[in-house]
Amino acid sequence: MTLKVVLVSALVAATLARPDTPRPSYNAPAPSYNAPVPSYNAPAPSYSAPAPEAPPKYDYNYAVKDEYSGNDFGAQEARDGYDTQGSYYVQLPDGRLQKVTYTVNGDSGFVADVIYEGEAQYPQESYAPAPKPSYGPAPAPSYKPAPAPPAYQ
């Protein structure tokens, strides 16, 4: 019987402790369907490039040779209208020089001739273990500790 009294008392206490004011509402606002639709079309360019007056014509070349790093490369190209001729070369890591000579004539596409000068050289491989690193003695600390304060008696 005491258990029934305790349960009924707990129920009455919980009911009386309930606030009489309504709980606040935290609902999100309703979506608005009258918003403008974004436009993803790019604006038209505000310039007009002039049409070329003549077919393209140019000639260029460059070369780099650095003995310290071993870099050796260069290129040259000449174009007159739809006909282009050129070449480029590069020193390969194996010691050979690769030369490419090419032509482009109208719609014929890129026609290349590749040649290699020299013999490929590969260094002798070493299977010896790497030497152990030497770190030497530990350096002395660069700070001096402060003297300890005197002990109080």
Score class of each variant (00 low, 15 high):
Thr2Leu: 11
Leu3Gln: 12
Leu3Asp: 15
Lys4His: 13
Lys4Asp: 14
Leu7Tyr: 13
Val8Thr: 15
Ala14Glu: 03
Ala14Cys: 15
Thr15Val: 15
Leu16His: 12
Leu16Val: 15
Pro19Glu: 06
Asp20Ile: 08
Thr21Trp: 08
Arg23Trp: 10
Arg23Pro: 00
Pro24Ala: 11
Pro24Ser: 09
Pro24Met: 09
Ser25Thr: 11
Tyr26Gln: 11
Pro29Glu: 04
Pro29Trp: 04
Ala30Gly: 10
Asn34Arg: 11
Asn34Gln: 10
Ala35Thr: 15
Ala35Trp: 15
Ala35Lys: 13
Ser39Glu: 01
Ala42Phe: 14
Pro43Trp: 05
Ala44Val: 00
Ser48Thr: 15
Ala49Cys: 06
Pro50Arg: 03
Ala51Met: 01
Ala51Thr: 04
Glu53Asp: 06
Ala54Phe: 09
Ala54Pro: 03
Pro55Gln: 06
Val64Thr: 09
Lys65Phe: 05
Asp66Val: 01
Asp66His: 01
Gly70Leu: 04
Gly70Cys: 03
Gly70Tyr: 05
Asn71Ser: 09
Phe73Glu: 02
Phe73Ser: 00
Gly74Arg: 00
Ala75Tyr: 06
Ala75Ile: 02
Ala78Phe: 10
Asp80Asn: 12
Tyr82Pro: 09
Asp83Pro: 02
Asp83Val: 12
Thr84Trp: 03
Thr84His: 04
Tyr88Phe: 08
Tyr89Met: 03
Leu92Phe: 01
Leu92Cys: 09
Gly95Ser: 03
Gly95Asp: 04
Arg96Glu: 02
Gln98Tyr: 01
Lys99Cys: 02
Thr101Met: 05
Tyr102Leu: 03
Asn105Ile: 12
Asn105Leu: 15
Gly106Pro: 11
Asp107Gly: 06
Gly109Glu: 10
Gly109His: 08
Phe110Leu: 10
Val111Thr: 13
Glu119Thr: 01
Tyr122Gly: 04
Glu125Trp: 02
Tyr127Phe: 10
Ala130Lys: 08
Ala130Thr: 09
Pro131His: 08
Pro131Cys: 06
Lys132Asn: 13
Lys132Met: 13
Pro137Lys: 12
Ala138Ile: 08
Ala138Arg: 09
Pro141Thr: 07
Tyr143Thr: 05
